[in-house]
């Protein structure tokens, strides 16, 4: 896509997102917020999976670190949500450095399994350390205080409509940042590692350090999404670190398509919408979702974006059939 067309499309989507709280009902606004949270989580995660070719099954841990980081900071230090989000992201980064250091020397299935195990470690820590984390009840009573710039300016985010724009701000920021990273020298180095790690080393790229860097970076986005969810739901729950939650960004990336920036975003929208629709018709949404997943894996491996763009490529060049 040409740069102008892409920018125009991004502007249209941004405008549409700005219009949502004024045009749509409360529930739709809530769903849009959930989509954006999952979008931040997935678009950051896809730097690891799509760009670098590393499959982590433990990013829920960083999501939880963000949520609990914000929660503890809000309860014990300061209620300012900007500082809280920063604290959440910082917590996620610290945890990602620790876990990443132990995991990045491995690749593929070994990497997947290690991240899974460490993710579950965080889960069980949160679950068991009841006195500190509230155990299975979660950390409750997280407040949405106004965003304050050193007392000079205060922006309330108490209502859902106000908070929607708070999330939209971070969503747009994340998508922009990931877009820049994908186009940057760093992004190219990551793609090189995905394509051929050994050759990357012989190109002079310290592969492990890059892997750690992108692991921490994607962990930071997970932490951002987690801290925002904690504000949205007024709580942080151990489930955030559970491996089934860690599977969500994987799923969403595959659903939308791994190789593009928009893939994980489209995937997030489809995932949240599909979950809502299935849940409306049946209690057994896991069953139906599993079946949908099977169909996608066996039939549409390019993801929605990949399948569509392949379709349009074919349509544009009918001679090649």
């Amino acid at each position: 896509m040409k740069a102008e067309a892409r920018n125009a499309a991004a502007a249209v989507v941004l405008l549409a997102l700005c219009a949502v709280p004024f045009l749509a009902g409360k529930f739709t606004v809530y769903l849009a917020m959930r989509i954006m949270l999952l979008g931040i989580f997935a678009v950051g995660y896809n730097l690891l999976l799509g760009q670098t070719g590393l499959l982590s099954f433990g990013h829920g841990a960083f999501y939880a670190a963000g949520a609990y980081g914000l929660g503890f900071f809000g309860l014990h230090v300061s209620g300012n949500p900007l500082f809280g989000v920063a604290a959440g992201v910082a917590a996620a980064i610290l945890l990602a450095i620790l876990v990443g250091y132990l995991c990045v020397r491995h690749t593929e299935i070994y990497f997947a399994m290690l991240t899974l195990a460490f993710g579950m470690m965080v889960f069980s820590l949160i679950w068991n350390a009841r006195e500190i984390t509230g155990g299975d009840d979660g950390l409750i009573g997280i407040m949405r205080s106004p965003v304050s710039f050193f007392g000079l300016l205060e922006i309330p985010i108490g209502t859902d409509r106000q908070f929607y724009f708070f999330i939209l701000f971070f969503f747009a920021l994340s998508v922009w940042a990931v877009h820049r990273i994908r186009q940057s020298p760093f992004g190219l180095a990551l793609a090189g590692i995905r394509e051929n790690a050994r050759r990357s080393e012989f190109a002079g790229v310290p592969v492990r350090r890059y892997r750690l860097a992108v692991f921490v970076l994607s962990g930071a986005f997970a932490g951002l999404a987690g801290s925002l969810e904690a504000l949205l739901e007024s709580n942080a729950r151990p489930f955030m670190a559970h491996w089934t939650h860690s599977a969500e960004p994987v799923l969403v990336s595959l659903l939308g398509g791994l190789s593009s920036l928009t893939g994980p975003l489209v995937g997030s929208a489809i995932f949240i919408a599909m979950r809502e629709i299935i849940q409306r018709f049946t209690e057994n949404w896991m069953l139906w979702f599993g079946i949908v997943l099977l169909v996608i894996i066996l039939g549409f491996r390019g993801g929605v974006v990949g399948t569509l763009s392949a379709f349009f490529r074919k349509a544009a060049a009918p001679g090649e059939g």
Binding site: L49, L55, E108, T244, A247, L251, M286, L287, G290, I291
Partner: peptide, 16 residues
């Protein structure tokens, strides 16, 4: 096929 699909396939069966 690529590893993520394999893992998600077995994950789908966990859900089911």
């Amino acid at each position: 096929i690529a590893l993520p699909y394999q893992l998600l396939l077995t994950f789908a069966f966990v859900l089911i």
